[in-house]
Design a protein around this nucleic acid. Sequence first.
DNA 1: CATGATGTTGACCAATCGGTCAATAGCCAG
DNA 2: CTGGCTATTGACCGATTGGTCAACATCATG
Lengths: 244, 244
Amino acid sequence: MRGGKAGAEGGARGTGRRRTPERAGPRAARAAGTAGEAGTAGAILRAAERLFGEHGYEGTSVQQLAQLAGVNKALVFYHFGSKQQLFDAVLERYYRAHARAIRQAIRRARGGPRERIHQLLDGYLDFMERHRVYPRLVQQELARRSGRLELIRRNLGELASAVRTLLAGLCPEQGPLAPEHFFASFAGMVVTWFTHAPALGELWARDPLGTAMRRERRAHLHWVVDALLDRLLGERGPHAQRRP
Amino acid sequence: MRGGKAGAEGGARGTGRRRTPERAGPRAARAAGTAGEAGTAGAILRAAERLFGEHGYEGTSVQQLAQLAGVNKALVFYHFGSKQQLFDAVLERYYRAHARAIRQAIRRARGGPRERIHQLLDGYLDFMERHRVYPRLVQQELARRSGRLELIRRNLGELASAVRTLLAGLCPEQGPLAPEHFFASFAGMVVTWFTHAPALGELWARDPLGTAMRRERRAHLHWVVDALLDRLLGERGPHAQRRP
DNA sequence: CATGATGTTGACCAATCGGTCAATAGCCAG
DNA sequence: CTGGCTATTGACCGATTGGTCAACATCATG
């Protein structure tokens, strides 16, 4: 807790302004549209996406935010109510975009289970490549105390249930080969590639986010998908588990 | 940049103190020992490990640090010079412990390549389970501007080269099946399990860090190792690549 | 006891923090 | 032109930030 009235309550000083906390901007951000958000609020939002993604919540000041957006600092509070609510708005936007991308990838998927899984992976990778600060944002939110976990859960839930549906019948429902583990494994393999990109680049003297390396990574992940699916299908037969 | 002289330079005001920045503590932290660090400096270090790991660098104040350690705030600067240098000390300690654990796992490994790989994975998991804030610390450091990338590279390098040695002859040296990709994949699968634990727990109503789930996860990862190795070995034969 | 190094303390600093507020600019409807 | 509404501004607030400093405690050695 730092600065300010530390609670937004307790004021009611002199003027009759009752300080309704639900206000938070010009009529709920322009009809709550999913538009590209031109104008002042949009500029602030874009600056927030970048700075929160690069420096984290605590590492970003409202001053920097306003400066990058090219607007007055007070406008941030006018349009979004508080720094925390601005952060929530940024997360919400990303989550919506992510969920939309996942749904689209599932809807467009064609072919058998194996092909559909490959297409879902491609959709996931596409989204990550288009929104590179997103995994960092999520990770930083996870690290924070009393983060908006329900937001994350809602969003992760969409992807997780998609994976569970796709894997239905291909793997056991419980134990080490449950869909949850495969979901966590692939999310991990994809996400860390982006969050650890600076260190991996330093280590290999090749930019992991460059075109060539991204394509290579994609091929690697598809190869892993096939390897796991083959073993999964093989084990449904007479094969025994290797490491009990 | 926030507070203070904002540069530690340019002072030289009045007093003759030339402000040698190399000072930073009581003769370089008690002979630079790897000891358990009892005493004031140790208490500060332990508090720093916890708070930096939980709230991140920017999210932790020197005040909180000193309070948790039960010492005066000024002592933090006396023993470690600055907040940044304290953070570096914490990272350095973890890196040393990590490198030691990796070396030990490699030295103790017995059997053929497959068995050695399994044992290295176990060693990696053991370390992560014992130091749960470590992956968060690394991630937060990665996200920060002008982080100590060389520190991370040195540490990641040790593990990466171990993986490369173990995989030598088992996989191509370049392309989507290069050791680097397998290294990144397994690091990702392990690390995200810990960094995303709160969200995954919320999602599944089971604690990913609980004993049962940790054991399950370990079994899953060993299964993945076998699946990938089998396919890798199979492809060295007459098999063709599935997805060109 | 005197001395000097090593630890420790609380008061203090400028800068910055998130947030508020009265004044105002712009604009459209009446 | 006049209200009334929204958007914008700059000055301002108390709290907290990382960091400094002179005074002081502690203690082994001369």
